[in-house]
Design a protein around this nucleic acid. Structure first.
Length: 727
DNA sequence: AAGATAGTCGTTTTT
DNA sequence: CGACTATCTT
């Protein structure tokens, strides 16, 4: 066997990790140290050198993106897709297990996945049923409580309340919620993991089967595992199979979501004989950037201790800019980006990172003023959009009438004369009879439990869904989806929504149909419809728009994890904002903020700018902050302070923010000669909507032409007579 | 059942 | 300040 393709081009530590003898191993992989590479090569090694069957390997990640990437790279390296290999997210794999063993898991065959939005709605209803005052008992809080308990692997009956009213109420809500889920055949994200864990504990034979099937388990981003995920792995391994954990304690930034950094430290105890390999060679950043990162993270205690090094050049120093205010900071960043672009670099090589989403607006405005295209990551995901969820709800009802979440969502969408009073009645009936709302509705129709008018409408709805179901049995997925969008009147309903919103919703629905058309089923156990719906719930579908346009990337520090960019800006690096004031009290949380800073710095390959604003408008009032402690932790010799070139910075005269808002629906701004806008009724920075191009912003006026930047189609020049409505 | 209006609250978000 | 919600109007 020629092992060279697998081991060539790896450094010593990487090679050691890849070719280690079978057994538990912990790979501590620093930022930019080729973590995924090692993971993928390890798998290739097992298959090609150790002759392990691909069936015997289980690889677990956190995100779908990571799972996809791993699959792709395995395929690339091995030259084929190792079919039968299990590569997926914790949730995806748990789901797969529950689907395969639904009876043992005590679930209906066609159970549905509840996303956090559905979950919250359901909890609200539970609150109502328990007659909890919304003021005193926010549903959000219960949601947090329930999810937290599930993350910790706790069922309501095992939670100690000690007679505390708050605790007791939360447990009551949890128990009632659980009942509602069970009745509706609904499973939330936490439940997937918890059930999968219990599935094994309660079925030793099944567990044994999987332990034998998967002698090799690999886990990515191990520092992000929570209690239940860790327990699940521990049970699976049973001390028998070899677990490879790859992670970086310094990049643990999801503690607030239940991730336990301790898991990576505990690994030795629970997975005996673990081989530890540290990947400390960084292939990403210049020495100056790396040393800055090292200097910052050194201030954390209890680290497993890794120090990244590089063979590369020192590179440029880290630049620090003290903005006079947030506008000035944003202006500075945009100027630097324009410089960078002038030097022949693509915009997509640069990223602006910030602690909180609220910071993006001011940056966007500055970019807009200079007509620099940008793209924001994060925000609402495709399958979470209202119109998409509506369509999916119909599809869900087709396969499961007990899905109350779906029922409530579309029973009156599009509006068909079923008001809140009727729905309340149905809900009450369902609660009293312990049945699903669907059954409640149909019983109430037959038993004359409704006013004649309501009965007619409700019956219409029931028949509509039944009809969809009847027709769907021998239709392809995209035909079914098309029915769910068209025959239900959903499309028409959203079409009627005025303005840009309706337009976007229509497009999204089209996109949904496209997705259905190109969906390739891969599971014989399930109908394509079932498979598609499960996929939609587990993969929120991040792919959105504008891949083709060269644009600056804006995102939070959290979403930047795992990415890299030649030029990086970290904005708003001020005490109170970063580290965030909410994290100030507890040392543990402060350390997590520091790790977040470490993540941010190590995203940069060639050049890093750190900036802050001496004064910043927050929540409407002006605040004065000092530079972040993290900046002070970087040695002076690695930093270079940027001074203002000219004493007077260009005044910001206009822009979306400062310009007065239009009042009333009129599209004329009488008498306003705004910055060359002439008599178009428009001004720079004005948000407008166009019938075909959608929502956009005015960038420039030149002669009788207007340059606009549209959300969806980018920048365009239009003539002054174009049909543009201010919004 | 859509539209206006007053009140609220304000990190980060893999599934 | 401004986005989002809950509530009140018509």
């Amino acid at each position: 066997m020629d092992v060279s393709p697998i081991l060539d081009n790896l450094n010593d530590a990487q090679r050691q990790a890849v070719s280690a003898p079978a057994g538990n191993q912990l790979i501590l992989a620093g930022a930019g140290s080729g973590k995924t590479r090692v993971l993928v090569h390890r798998i290739a090694w097992l298959i090609q050198v150790e002759k392990v069957s691909p069936y015997a390997i289980l690889a677990v990640t956190f995100t779908n993106k990571a799972a996809r990437e791993m699959r792709g790279r395995i395929e690339e390296l091995l030259g084929l897709n190792p079919k039968g290999m299990w590569v997926g997210t914790f949730h995806g794999i748990a789901h797969r297990l529950l689907k395969a063993h639904w009876q043992d898991a005590k679930l209906p065959k066609n159970f549905q996945i509840l996303d956090s939005d559905d979950q919250l709605r359901l909890i609200k209803r539970v609150h109502q049923a328990l007659q909890l005052d919304e003021e005193q008992w926010p549903a959000k809080q219960s949601q947090w409580f329930i999810n937290h308990q599930k993350d910790e692997g706790l069922r309501p009956q095992y939670i100690q309340t000690n007679g505390d009213l708050h605790q007791e109420t939360m447990v009551r809500v949890y128990a009632a919620y659980e009942e509602a889920c069970q009745r509706g055949g609904l499973v939330d994200f936490g439940e997937l993991l918890l059930r999968a864990h219990e599935l094994w504990l309660n079925n030793p034979r099944l567990l044994e089967h999987y332990q034998e099937r998967f002698p090799f388990v690999l886990v990515d981003e191990f520092q992000d595992t929570n209690t239940i995920q860790y327990a699940w792995l521990q049970v699976l391994s049973g001390g028998k199979c070899a677990v490879t954990a790859v992670g970086d304690d310094d990049q643990s930034i999801y503690g607030w979501r239940g991730a336990k950094i301790e898991n990576i430290q505990r690994f030795h105890q629970d997975f005996p004989g673990a081989d530890v390999v540290k990947l400390e060679q960084n292939y990403r950043s210049t020495a100056n950037i790396l040393n800055a990162a090292n200097a910052v993270i050194e201030n954390n205690s209890g680290r497993l201790g890794k120090t990244l090094r590089t063979d590369g050049d020192d590179g440029e120093k880290v630049s620090l800019y003290a903005g006079f205010n947030e506008q000035d900071e944003a202006r500075f960043i945009v100027e630097r980006i324009e410089d960078w672009q002038r030097k022949g670099n693509k915009l997509e090589t640069t990223a602006i990172l910030y602690r909180s989403n609220a910071q993006s607006r001011i940056l966007e405005e500055a970019l807009l003023r200079e007509a620099v295209p940008y793209r924001i990551y994060g925000g609402q995901r495709f399958y979470e959009r209202l119109e998409i969820k509506n369509a999916l709800a119909y599809m869900r009802l087709i396969i499961n009438r007990n899905d109350d979440a779906a029922f409530e969502r579309v029973v009156n969408t599009p509006t068909r004369g079923i008001g809140s009073k009727t729905v309340d009645g149905i809900r009450l009936f369902a609660r009293e009879h312990g049945c699903a709302m669907w059954d409640a509705a149909s019983q109430m129709v037959t038993n004359k439990g409704l006013t004649p008018r309501a009965a007619g409408s409700v019956n219409g709805f029931l028949e509509l869904v039944n009809e969809l179901d009847n027709q769907s049995s021998d239709l392809s997925l995209d035909k079914i989806a098309s029915m769910a969008v068209n025959s239900t009147g959903l499309l028409e309903f959203h079409q009627k929504e005025k303005g840009e919103k309706g337009q976007a919703r229509i497009e999204n629905l089209q996109e949904l149909l496209n997705a259905c058309r190109s969906f390739v089923p891969g599971n014989e156990e399930l109908t394509p419809l079932e498979e598609f719906l499960d996929g939609a719930a587990l993969d929120a579908g991040e792919a959105q728009a504008d891949e083709f346009e060269d644009a600056v990337q804006l995102m939070t520090l959290h979403s930047a994890k795992g990415l890299e960019f030649p030029l990086v800006f970290m904005a708003g690096v001020e005490e109170g904002l970063f580290p965030h004031r909410m994290s100030a009290e507890e040392p543990g949380r402060m350390e997590e903020e520091r790790r977040l800073c470490y993540v941010g710095i190590t995203r940069a390959m060639e050049k890093l700018y750190i900036s802050y604003a001496e004064s910043r408008r927050m929540y409407g009032s002006e605040t004065f902050n000092t530079v972040s402690r993290f900046v002070k932790e970087i040695p002076d010799n690695l930093i270079e302070e940027v001074r203002l070139k000219s004493t007077v910075s260009r005044p910001v005269r206009y822009g979306a923010k400062n310009a007065p808002k239009l009042v009333g629906g009129g599209n004329k701004v009488a008498g306003r000669l705004s910055d060359g806008g002439g008599d178009t009724g428009l001004r720079l920075g004005q948000r407008v909507s166009h019938p075909t191009f959608g929502e956009g912003v005015v960038l420039h006026f030149e002669g009788n032409k207007i340059q606009l930047n549209f959300k969806d189609v980018g920048t365009k020049w239009l003539i002054a007579g174009a049909k543009l409505d201010p919004i």
